[in-house]
């Protein structure tokens, strides 16, 4: 409990940044993520410079090797591999970021309410949390990703639109990933609400919403930040698995995961097509995990000294 209480302490900005900066792993991760993010942002510009469209099919230039106009060669439909990777990165990184923030938001709301209100509501929310944790997520996500939105009453125009698969996958990973943050925030709130400043706020006449949002939430930001960073990586992994299985991002949109679906069949003829997207997923997830770990230790040096 002491470890948790100190994890909940407010981030001390200067010291915390200094400690983060001293870790080579953290710097490298920030560099990798920055480069990948920059590449994704600049994808349209790169496309303009190279003079191709990432979705343009050119059957006369299938599976070409690297050349000046195609720095990483072309895929089985003659599309430029580099552009496809950058374009896929836009989708993968976006889904990872938005999905993780979505999950963290749900988790924070549940954790705040459960921890502060307590009683029956707390017991109910935590049982739901335990239940979700105990479920086999991957098969359930596959079924959820396969559900026909039209049978749920979503109009055909929206259900079949190009971006629907992206929204759906963000919603799915958020629904599956909120439990960790909820537990962290609840544990933090449970110890915080006994503290004097909360009693003082109640005495001054603050309502429960104000106490939760202005007094408790800012003090639980450190563990939320760590958990969100870590979950960007796991969200990208889940997205890539679903997309790889053909249930996530639907063509013509592509993510790194869905690019691997086609590459799998060509693994003997064009192995590099299978190597690149996987390497990018791998690099992103490693960077998120290392950064999350470093953040945790930088935000909470006491806990890391005792070994965790």
């Amino acid at each position: 409990m002491t470890a948790l209480a100190s994890a909940v302490a407010a981030p001390r900005m200067p010291g915390f940044l200094r400690r983060l900066w001293r870790r080579p792993g953290a710097c490298a991760s920030i560099l990798v993520l920055g480069l990948l993010g920059l590449g994704a942002l600049l994808a349209p510009l790169v496309a303009r410079i190279l003079g191709h469209d990432p979705e343009m099919v050119d059957l006369l230039a299938r599976l070409e090797g690297p050349s000046l106009s195609h720095p990483l060669g072309t895929d089985e439909l003659g599309r430029d591999t580099l552009l496809r990777l950058l374009q896929g990165g836009r989708v993968s990184l976006l889904v990872g970021l938005v999905g993780a923030v979505g999950a963290a938001s749900i988790g924070t709301a549940v954790g705040l309410v459960a921890g502060y209100v307590g009683g029956r509501l707390d017991a109910l929310l935590m049982r739901v949390c335990d239940g979700v944790i105990a479920l086999p997520m991957l098969p359930l996500l596959i079924v959820l990703a396969a559900v026909d939105l039209q049978k749920l009453g979503v109009p055909a125009g929206i259900a079949d639109s190009e971006d629907a698969s992206i929204y759906r996958i963000v919603a799915l990973v958020a629904l599956a990933g909120w439990t960790g943050v909820a537990r962290l925030v609840r544990a933090g709130v449970l110890s915080l609400r006994e503290r004097d400043f909360v009693t003082a706020a109640v005495a001054v006449g603050c309502g429960p919403w104000r106490i939760m949002l202005r007094h408790l939430l800012p003090n639980t930001l450190s563990p939320i930040l760590v958990a969100t960073t870590l979950s960007v990586g796991s969200v990208i992994l889940v997205e890539s698995v679903l997309s790889f299985l053909g249930l996530g991002i639907q063509p013509p949109a592509a993510s790194w995961g869905s690019m691997l679906t086609n590459a799998q069949e060509l693994v003997t003829t064009a192995p590099m097509l299978a190597i690149y997207p996987g390497l990018l997923i791998f690099a992103t997830v490693v960077a998120c995990n290392v950064l999350g770990d470093a953040l945790q230790e930088a935000l909470d040096p006491q806990q890391s000294r005792s070994g965790r």
Partner: peptide, 15 residues
Amino acid sequence: CFAGISVPTFWLALV
């Protein structure tokens, strides 16, 4: 360990 945790299983299998 970080590498092992972060590798996408399907890609590992493919490689």
